[in-house]
Design a protein around this nucleic acid. Structure first.
Length: 283
DNA sequence: AACACCGCCTGAGCGC
DNA sequence: TGCGCTCAGGCGGTGT
């Protein structure tokens, strides 16, 4: 399931095939995956013009904030891609057949005869058509700081504003952007913090450890090519390798990699949660 | 404000 | 082999 590392890996893998290319045509197969943003308001079933999907634009930048990926065109329009649980962008070189055309909700044909596909079986993801760079900027400023580069002082300031438990706070994209269930559990384990610890009660050194753990976990996952859970693969169809190195996620009942204590599963903030009861003491 | 809970959606994995 | 069941979860919504 795509979190920040998968989206960043995807972004990097799409730079070469997409940057500078001109989009010949865009096809929206399911209207309800696209939201049109005009004057800050979203409409879900408005009739989109091809230009809303960047048809005719040259692709100028591929950027990311948190789990969101933006493709910006030469017209200044941007297409925001959120992969949700099962979303994928697939780039197919000219002549290459798409292995699975089910659930392809949008596709773009480029000037080198390659294609880009948005496929999302569960449709928890979606596309947002933004009219200007400012509209994109505005949306991203409403989110928390990007988790990949978050500093201890920024994280401390953010966590101080909430009385929630640590895990709930870290999953809140408005507080910090990019963490999902997997990497929150991994980062908390690495930082030896309990998911239910009140977010605003952390000591300075707790937060410093946490910020470092978040950046470390995410950087490692990116260099591993993202997690492979269920059916995650990158834009070229390669699975990630990260699942081999999950320390706690989906490992309830198995021994802690650090102290061999049996890992314990529970539900925190309505999400499956795994901790080491020895390493992550409740405070 | 914080939290629980729900619905969306499909595929994987399980027991039989 | 296949059927029915449960589970997974990002996010936005509602109710407390």
């Amino acid at each position: 399931m795509p979190e920040l590392p998968e989206v960043e890996h995807l972004r990097r893998s799409l730079l070469k095939p997409l940057l500078g290319r001109t989009i010949r045509s865009a096809t929206l197969r399911r209207r309800d995956v696209l939201r049109l943003v005009r004057d800050g308001a979203e409409s879900r079933l408005a009739r989109a013009r091809p230009a809303d999907l960047l048809a005719g634009d040259r692709i100028v930048t591929l950027t990311r904030h948190g789990k969101q990926l933006a493709i910006t065109g030469s017209s200044g329009r941007a297409l925001l891609v959120h992969l949700g649980m099962s979303g994928r962008l697939v780039h197919l070189d000219s002549g290459r057949r798409n292995a699975n055309s089910d659930h392809v909700h949008a596709l773009w044909r480029l000037d080198d005869a390659s294609r880009l596909l948005f496929r999302d079986p569960r449709r928890f993801g979606g596309l947002w058509a933004l009219p200007t760079p400012d509209a994109l900027e505005g949306r991203w400023q409403a989110l928390g700081p990007d988790a990949l580069t978050v500093t201890a002082s920024t994280l401390a300031r953010r966590l101080a504003t909430t009385s929630r438990g640590l895990k709930a706070a870290l999953l809140d994209q408005d507080l910090i952007a990019g963490l999902g269930n997997i990497y929150v559990d991994e980062a908390l384990f690495l930082a030896r913090l309990h998911p239910l610890a009140p977010a605003s009660n952390l000591t300075r050194s707790d937060v410093a450890r946490l910020a470092t753990a978040i950046r470390t976990i995410l950087r490692q996952a990116i260099s591993d090519g993202g997690s492979t859970l269920r059916d995650y693969v990158d834009a070229q169809g390669n699975p990630g390798r990260r699942q081999r190195s999950h320390a706690v996620y989906a490992r309830a009942g198995r021994p802690c990699v650090r102290c061999s204590t049996t890992l314990v599963g529970s539900r925190v903030a309505q999400r499956g949660t795994v901790i080491c009861p020895q390493c992550q003491l409740e405070c």
